[in-house]
Design a protein around this nucleic acid. Structure first.
Length: 517
RNA sequence: GCUCCGGUAGUAUAGUCCGGUCAAGUAUGCCGGCCUCUCGAGUCGGCGACCCGGGUCCAAAUCCCGGCCGGAGCACCA
């Protein structure tokens, strides 16, 4: 057996290589071949910035559109000026987030521009006796519908319905006095489906819409607007959260009346990240109250925050494709996202030294001037180097450095350390604020076998003050090496033995955001 | 309560439609070795799962029934 294996290995080495986990691919879309062109959409309410919770809908919808060479539509569902009031600034932040995620939008629509279209179809539904204007108070209607009964308005003749409809449009009703309902089977086992509401009145004098102000007082509800639009915009596949499952059931009644076929619908489960805040209302409220520094506060799970922290869109995309479209809920951990991100960053990030909470280290008897040449990337020398010269001074030929407090805490007299790519030292004495050591030897080989700790160092006087904003929004102060002055905002680098960080600001100080180890 | 979904290692996922090749694959995590002038990366090895109970069948993660657990919906929100 072993012999056979050896022969196989010798002659066909590639067959023995453990197959590298092949890139995971998305399952094919149901009935994809039925449609000449696949059309998907992402349809957010612009009432908040986007966050990881939307990542599934966005990335999967977009990815499928690309796989099938189809079309990806962005549709703003801003039809509630009162309760989930949209805000102008979010339309644009959503467009930017999508762009950042690498999702190219082929077409964009805004529902608040389309009210006349919704009115037309509503009129048609009413005229055909498939919808009616209901004047019942909602609690009243609830009682009737739970008993599987028709409400008194349901059987009012169509011409009178139309009259009521026009009265609605003309302001003859106030908020809550009338609502348009689409007829369904009153025997439907789910009471929530029975004669669902399609349009309602909103007092836009009191609650003006951020885009169209008080122009309209009759506003469509989700199922009417989204239902009509999905057909009108040629959607073939709807990918959305499972909270929309019953909405599909409701909308199918309307599709039947209009003689349309409902698109293929995929309902995926909720996505949670342990420890991340993914609630829109909590995010908006927290920002408003000043609990967070903004929508990009590192504690938040918003795309803005992730971007600021140096999480790459590629990592998010990869994770979403791996998670797929199952209908069960998924609970991911930050660790998971980080490992996707680390793979990407490790290859692309330059390395630099950073010493958090610096402590002075004085090395005596340094025999000569040293030039340290430090590679920007351990596996890619072609990326270049940073170079530092240390020159001993005074009678005791001393050189002073900054090292991290954490490293200094492990220092004890007689212990040997290596200043990375420089030389080895032996500790002599230590006080609370400084450590004294003496030069031990130069060669790495001397200490390699005894596995001494390699530590980061920064020559005193060359330090570049640096603040690292941590994921919990706390700030770690320290010194970065002088070459960091050349860095540009948005670059993502690795502070060796500390973690990956994204450069936010390079001025008198270096301000960076911590991504992960 | 009612109406739907769903339950594979710590987490996520493959396999479930069309039962055997699954004493269950992969990623991440954790443990250990090697490698490396980072506590990163790489590499090698290890740990770890079919919710429970019946049934059908030569054979069940896969089909059927019951239970348990989890989730979603039940708005004049999206």
């Amino acid at each position: 057996m072993a012999e056979q294996k050896a022969i196989v290995e010798k002659n066909w080495p590639e067959t023995q290589k453990k197959e590298k986990a092949e890139e995971k691919r998305l399952p094919s879309l149901p009935n994809a071949d039925k449609y000449p062109k696949i059309v998907t959409r992402f349809s957010p309410n612009p009432d908040c910035v986007l966050h990881l919770g939307s990542a599934r809908a966005i990335l999967l919808s977009h990815e499928y559109a690309r796989i099938y060479n189809g079309k990806f539509i962005l549709r703003f569902e801003d039809t509630d000026p009162k309760i989930k009031r949209p805000s102008l600034k979010f339309y644009d932040s959503i467009r930017q987030d999508l762009k950042w995620l690498g999702c190219k939008v082929d077409e964009e629509y805004i529902q608040s521009d389309r009210l006349p279209i919704y009115y037309d179809y509503t009129e048609r539904l009413i005229r055909d006796g498939n919808a009616y204007v209901c004047e019942c108070p909602s609690e009243e209607f609830r009682k009737i519908t739970i008993a599987k009964q028709a409400c008194p308005c349901r059987d009012v003749p169509a011409n009178e319905q139309l009259e009521r409809w026009h009265r609605m449009l003309n302001g003859g009703y106030t908020e809550g006095q009338a609502v348009v309902r689409v007829k369904t089977d009153l025997e439907n086992p789910n009471p929530a489906v029975r004669d669902w509401p399609a349009l309602r009145i909103i007092d836009t004098k009191k609650y003006p819409h951020p885009r169209v102000g008080s122009k309209y007082i009759v506003w469509p509800l989700y199922n009417l607007a989204a239902g009509l639009d999905d057909h009108l915009m040629g959607m073939t596949h709807i990918i959305r959260g499972k909270e929309h499952y019953t909405n599909m059931v409701r909308q199918k009644y309307m599709y039947d009346y209009l003689g349309w076929t409902y698109p293929e619908a995929i309902h995926y489960g909720r996505l949670k990240i342990t420890g991340a805040f993914l609630s829109k209302s909590k995010i908006v409220q927290g920002v408003k109250e000043g609990l967070y520094t903004g929508y990009d506060d590192p504690r938040l799970g918003t795309f803005a925050a992730l971007r600021k922290r140096g999480i790459t869109p590629e990592a998010i995309k990869k994770m979403m494709i791996d998670v797929g479209i199952k209908s069960n809920d998924v609970t991911l951990s930050w660790e998971n996202l980080f490992s996707y991100n680390r793979k990407i960053l490790d290859a692309s990030s330059d390395r630099y030294f950073f010493v958090p909470q610096p402590v002075e280290l004085k090395v005596l008897q340094v025999p000569k001037v040293f030039n340290a040449k430090l590679s920007l990337h351990p596996e890619k020398p072609e990326r270049g180097f940073r170079e530092y010269t240390v020159t001993p001074e005074g009678e005791d030929k001393a050189v002073s450095f900054w090292v991290s407090k954490k490293d200094s805490e492990t220092m004890e007299p007689e212990k040997v350390f290596r200043l990375m790519e420089l030389f080895n030292i032996k500790i002599e004495s230590k006080t609370d604020s400084s450590v004294t050591a003496k030069f031990a030897s130069e060669s790495y080989e001397d200490v390699r076998k005894i596995k001494v700790q390699l530590i980061q160092w920064i020559p005193k006087g060359t330090e570049f003050p640096c603040q690292v904003v941590m994921p919990d929004a706390s700030v770690t102060e320290g010194f970065a090496e002088a070459d960091c002055k050349k860095l540009k905002p948005d670059a993502i680098i690795q502070f060796e033995r500390f973690g990956f960080v994204r450069i936010n600001e390079v001025n008198q100080k270096l301000i960076v955001y911590y991504a992960h180890k």
